[in-house]
Lab assay of single mutants.
Amino acid sequence: DLRKKIVDLHKSGSSLGAISKRLKVPRSSVQTIVRKYK
Rank of each mutant, 00 (worst) to 15 (best):
K4H: 10
R27M: 13
A18C: 12
L2Y: 06
V7D: 02
R3C: 14
K38F: 10
D1V: 11
S28H: 11
I19H: 01
S29N: 08
G17P: 04
L16F: 09
I6R: 01
K21P: 03
S20D: 01
L23T: 05
R22H: 12
S20T: 05
K11L: 14
L16G: 03
Y37K: 05
K38E: 12
K5S: 08
S20I: 05
K5D: 05
R22G: 07
S29V: 15
R22A: 15
Q31A: 14
L2D: 02
I33S: 04
G17S: 14
K21V: 07
S20L: 03
K4I: 08
V34Q: 01
S20M: 04
K36D: 11
K24A: 09
L2H: 05
P26L: 05
K11I: 13
K5N: 07
T32A: 15
S12E: 09
Y37W: 12
R3D: 06
L16W: 04
Q31M: 05
L16C: 12
R27L: 15
P26N: 08
R35V: 06
V7A: 08
L16H: 06
S14L: 15
R35W: 05
D1F: 12
I6P: 00
K24G: 15
D1I: 12
L2S: 04
I33V: 13
Q31N: 08
V25S: 03
I33P: 02
V25H: 03
R3L: 12
V30G: 04
R27A: 07
S29P: 03
V34R: 00
I33W: 00
T32K: 15
K4L: 08
K11Y: 07
K5L: 14
V30D: 03
I19Y: 00
Q31C: 14
L2K: 06
K36W: 14
V30F: 00
S14E: 15
L9A: 05
K4M: 10
L23M: 07
V25T: 04
K21R: 13
L2I: 11
V7L: 15
L9H: 02
K36H: 10
S20F: 00
D1E: 12
I19E: 00
Y37N: 06
I19N: 00
L9D: 02
G13E: 01
S14K: 13
D1Y: 13
S20E: 03
K24F: 06
V34I: 14
S29E: 12
A18Y: 10
V7E: 07
R35A: 11
A18S: 11
D8L: 13
P26A: 11
L23Y: 03
L9F: 05
R3M: 12
P26K: 09
R22D: 09
S15H: 03
S14P: 02
P26E: 05
Q31S: 12
G13N: 04
A18F: 09
D8E: 14
K4N: 09
K21E: 10
A18R: 07
S28W: 12
S28T: 10
R3G: 07
S28F: 08
S15Q: 03
K4A: 10
V34G: 02
G13D: 01
V34K: 02
V7H: 06
